[in-house]
Each structure stands twice: as structure tokens, then as C-alpha cells.
Design a protein around this nucleic acid. Structure first.
Lengths: 337, 337
DNA sequence: TTGTAAGCGTTATCAG
DNA sequence: CTGATAACGCTTACAA
């Protein structure tokens, strides 16, 4: 395992200066003979340019960060699947950060921007703290936030009208004749949790249904938490006829609980999730879910970031994605999705 | 947005040399007063060390690559979920590569090792070509391969005895009285496809069952392909009483097809998958599956790599993970998993 | 304890 | 067209 060849090695072996080597390697005009010699030595030695040296000189790392709570969540996964190939096509590598929704962790990532190991960052903060806002303001590289940020925050921003999304499902359930519509939400101090909570209340009001706090239960955004929360809800309100879940994972947990409790879905209880992840079509019965355009949001975020990396300077942009209701058997009683 | 502060900036502002700044920043012995001044300026300026410069000097990037076919596959996902926190704890960042199972792409990643933007690589090649082997041999940084490699390949290696895994399920199905055990495999020119194909034949033989090529169908490792392949198989062999699928995604496709065909699972056809991903417990009926220890393999790979980064030089190691049969309703006829 | 200076591997400028 | 040389930001002998 000989030492890594550098342009100096090549220069010596080819009998030219390192400047010439660099020129050849970068396709700058060079005498044919020189080029030939350099290329031949380079190939022979298996030369590969050192990225640290390049980055130091060029002030670009050709890496982009993606920070989200947990890659295991299918929503983020759907985003990564869009983002990664786009970045790759644009010549960037993807550095993945799972933050466990820990604000301190997220802020660490933001601080990391100063290290310049990434040229830009796509981030999905579950909660936006003052610490976040400070770092956004001081950031030394472009950031795209997926999720809502306060007006005036100097970052590009991709959001989804989850309010409209909640309204869509609630109307759907109401249209099916359901009147006791329970709601299993995620933590209220998270951005999506808070938004969905408000949207649920608003949607009920629009439909002239009373808001009954007994119908609302909060857990975390995972299947097991969803199951527990749904169980509590079911015990408290046995005559529930519909259940809206703040994401698909929660809905899966709810389905488990309902099945075990012997409730038929959708006959006894109609169940709907949010995010419309792949899991919705795997669940049984297939899960009605509001698509919040995860893939689309990922794509938009990557586009915004790549755009800004191309030429910076313009004002922050916001892209809003429209939610879309996808009805399946868990509310419709049809066998096939 | 002022220019990034460097140690030079700090040195000037603190009235000391860059060497002193560096020392303070690295916790080397320094006069208290100097330290105070430097730290105060550094904090005030929001100094963050430049990672490219550091890497160039230290010859370490503090990054590790993970290359797999498709992050959307729950098996790889399970691995990333183990690997990422371990690397993070050890001070490494994770660079993600999705290769679409394209050999050329994978080789590009291996070539990238020469750029030194990662200190090591965990890779799951779906096919191991001569190109791979060459690059393994020439690699300038440690590699851990998840999956089998030829004897003597100079990389650390984590494998699973998938042969034993297949045997476990086939025996299980046989023990349930099934005799017409179909097999939906992935592409035969992939490492897992080939291994599972051989193992299936072998398992039948061990049990004294005849190998009937009509009972075998090949598609890709995805749900839709699995569905198509299962449909072909079902049409050709209507009296099938069990179906082994080369992974859970294929099994999900098969479940769809069987349901649409009005076959009861497991009464008419018992279905089993492989990998025991999260999907197995989401599917309906819950899917019997052979765990190939994805999480465990991820963990082992990270351990091997971190170990070797600590001190290189020892001989390549191989860790083998034992498969484990997880029975659920898709073969057992129980309602609960 | 501190400063000077060399060097990590590139790119880019500026003379020849 | 080419070579010497100066950066890029940092760590680390070595000297003071």
C-alpha cells in the first residue's frame, strides 16, 4: 500500500511542474505531448485528487447535509429518496444527520455549517427554538427548512398546508356520517403537532361539530405510542366512530388496538392517517391518509438549495405543497385500495 | 455576512500568533492570560475550525461512507439506523450513497475512497464483480462489506448464513404439512438471489421433496415485481400450498396477489418472507419471516470498521450472523403475531 | 510559554 | 505553453 500519489508525484515522474499537472487534470489548454505524459503517469499511478485540498482551495465541499429526526420515519425516508439522486446528479454528496428531534443536536448541526464540511443544509426541525432562529440568522451556508418557520426567517422554506390536509380528512369522515371523530395527535410542542391540533379544532368548527377535548389524545409520532394513545382514547370514548391520526405510524398503532378490541374498521370505526406513506397500502385495511407530499417536499427542498448554491443573493423563497386526500378501505369499506 | 473567521483573524485580534491560537483551541498548555484572550475572541467571533484545512493536515475526514442499493429498502434502512448513531458517537459523519445496485456506481464509490473524503466505507454490493475485487484490493481506506465476498478478499466482512435461513423456513412450512412450496426469488445474478436459490434446492432435497422448477419464479426484490412473479407462479401451479419469498417486499406483493385471487392465507397458501423487516408486522396477515439480523449486521459492520480505524494492520475479519425464524399468522393461522 | 515557519495537496496568478 | 510561487486554514516542529 504505497503512499497516495499527489500532483507532485505525477509532476516528478512526468518531468513537468505541478502547475502543468493541475492544468492537464483540469482540462486547461496544454501541449498535446505534456498532456499525454501527465495523463499516462496519472493513470498508471491511479491518481485521485485529494478532496480536502480541493475543498480548502475552492471553499466548497460538494457535500450537502440533510438533518431530520429519524431516518426510520417513512416520511423522511421518502424525502431522502428524492433528495439523494438530485444532489448526486448535481455533483453533491449527501451527509445524513439523525437528530432524534433533539434541539441541541439540531443546533449542533447548524453550528457545523461553520466547519464548511457542507455547502448547504436541508433541515426538518420538529421544534423551532430561539436557538434555531439565531443559527439560521448567523448561518454561513444556505439552509432550506422543510416545515414552517416564522415570517422573515432568512432561509428558504418548504411547507405544506397541513391545516387544509386535516380539513380534508375531517370533512371526508364527516361526509361518511361520522360524528364522534377522535384525534390522536403527536406532541403539541412540535411544529406539526401544534399545527394539526389547531387544524382539527378549526375543521370541527367549520363543520359545526362541537370540540370535545375527550376526543383528543396525545402520544408520540410512533406506532407504539399511537397504539397506547388510541387505547386510552377508546377506553374513554367507547362510542367513537372515527379516528384521525396525526401520521400513518400512529394510525398503524390504532389499527392494532382496534383489531384487538374487536372493532371493525371501517364499519365501527373509520381510521385515517396522515402523510400517505408506503405503509398506508401495506396496512390492513389499507389506510386512508392525507398525502402531505413528502416526495414533493423533498424535491422542492433540493431544488431550492441547488438553485441558491448556483447563485445566491436573492430573497428567501417559500414553496407550499398542497395536501391531497387518498381514500382507502380504512374509511370507505372497499376491499381494494 | 462577514468573512469566515480563521485562526489568523483571532490571532490578530488577540494580539498573539496563530500557533498560540491553535494551541489554545486544542487545549495544549498555554499561559492562562493568553488562553483567556484567545477564547474570548474566538467566542466573540463565533469561530469554528475549517474542516477542509483540518482534514488536509490530519489526513482524516471524520466521515464514513455507507453504500447500498436503495435506502428505501427496509433492510438497508434498519442497518443505517444502527450504523448512524454508532458512527456519530465515535465522532464520524455518515455519507450516504445509493447506488441502485449499479456495479459501475458502486465502483465509483470505491474509487472515491482515493479522494479521502471518507476514512472508511461500509458497502453492500448486490453483485460482486471483478471490478469490485480489484478496487477492494487497491483500496486506500478500510472497507467493510456486508454480504459474502470470495475467500481472501482483503476486507472485513459481515455475512449471514442465508442458507440456514432458507432451511429454517422450508422446514417450518414442511412441518406444517405443506408439500407444494413455491419460491419467488430475486435476480439470480445477485449475491442474495444466487445464495437463496441454491439454499432452496438444498433444503428441499434435505427434506426429500422433489425440486420442481415450475415452483420457482424470479422477479426483482420489490413489491410490484414480487406481485407479478407470484401471479405467474400461481397461474402455472394453482395447487401451490406454500410460498417462500426471497424478501419481505416480495412477500407483500405475493399477499396482494393471493388476496385478489381469493386464496386464504395461510389456510390455502402459507406465505413466508425473508429479512423480518418492520413491514412483516404491518402486513396482513402478519408475515412469517426469517430474520437475517439486519440491525445486528449493521452494528457488526460499524464495529468492525471503527475497530480497524482505531488500529489497522490486523488480518481481515469475518462476522457471521445467525438467521432466526419468526413465525406469524401468514403461516400459522393465528390471529395475533 | 510563545512565535516563526514548514507543510498538508490543490488551484491560480504571474512571469518567462 | 510552462514553471515558480503564493495562497487556502490548520497543526506542529523548532527556536527563541
Amino acid at each position: 500500500m504505497s503512499d497516495e500519489p499527489t500532483i507532485t508525484t505525477i509532476a516528478r515522474r512526468a518531468g513537468v511542474s505541478i502547475a502543468s499537472v493541475s492544468r492537464v487534470l483540469n482540462g486547461l489548454p496544454t501541449r498535446a505531448e505534456t498532456e499525454r505524459r501527465v495523463m499516462s503517469v496519472a493513470r498508471e499511478l491511479g491518481y485521485v485528487p485529494n478532496s480536502a485540498a480541493r475543498s480548502l482551495k475552492s471553499r466548497r465541499s460538494n457535500q450537502i447535509g440533510f438533518a431530520m429526526a429519524d431516518i426510520g420515519n417513512p416520511v423522511y425516508l421518502a424525502m431522502v429518496r428524492e433528495i439523494q439522486p438530485m444532489l448526486k446528479a448535481a455533483g453533491y454528496r449527501l451527509v445524513l444527520h439523525s437528530t432524534n428531534a433533539d434541539a441541541a443536536d439540531e443546533i449542533d448541526v447548524l453550528r457545523g455549517l461553520g466547519e464548511r464540511y457542507i455547502d448547504g443544509l436541508i433541515m426538518i426541525p420538529l421544534r423551532v427554538t430561539d436557538g434555531h432562529l439565531e443559527m439560521f440568522a448567523a448561518a454561513r451556508a444556505p439552509i432550506v427548512v422543510i416545515g414552517s418557520v416564522p415570517e422573515g426567517t432568512p432561509v428558504d422554506n418548504v411547507r405544506v398546508d397541513s391545516r387544509a390536509g386535516v380539513r380534508l380528512v375531517v370533512q371526508h369522515l364527516h361526509g361518511l356520517g361520522r360524528r364522534r371523530i377522535g384525534f390522536v395527535n403527536g406532541p403539541l410542542d412540535t411544529v406539526p403537532g401544534a399545527a394539526r391540533s389547531a387544524a382539527y379544532a378549526e375543521a370541527l368548527e367549520t363543520l359545526g361539530l362541537p370540540y370535545d377535548r375527550n376526543l383528543v389524545e396525545v402520544g408520540d409520532f410512533y406506532r407504539a405510542d399511537g397504539a397506547r394513545a388510541a387505547a386510552r382514547l377508546l377506553e374513554r370514548v367507547p362510542d367513537l366512530d372515527a379516528l384521525l391520526c396525526a401520521n400513518d405510524l400512529i394510525a398503524l398503532g390504532a389499527l392494532d388496538v382496534l383489531r384487538r378490541a374487536g372493532r371493525r374498521v371501517p364499519e365501527d370505526v373509520a381510521v385515517a392517517g396522515m402523510d400517505d406513506t408506503d405503509l398506508a397500502t401495506i396496512a390492513w385495511p389499507p389506510l386512508t391518509s392525507v398525502s402531505l407530499g413528502s416526495a414533493e417536499r423533498g424535491r422542492a427542498a433540493a431544488e431550492l438549495l441547488l438553485d441558491r448554491l448556483d447563485r445566491d443573493g436573492r430573497a428567501p423563497r417559500t414553496v407550499t405543497v398542497e395536501p391531497r386526500l387518498v381514500t382507502r378501505a380504512s374509511t370507505m369499506g372497499e376491499e381494494t385500495p
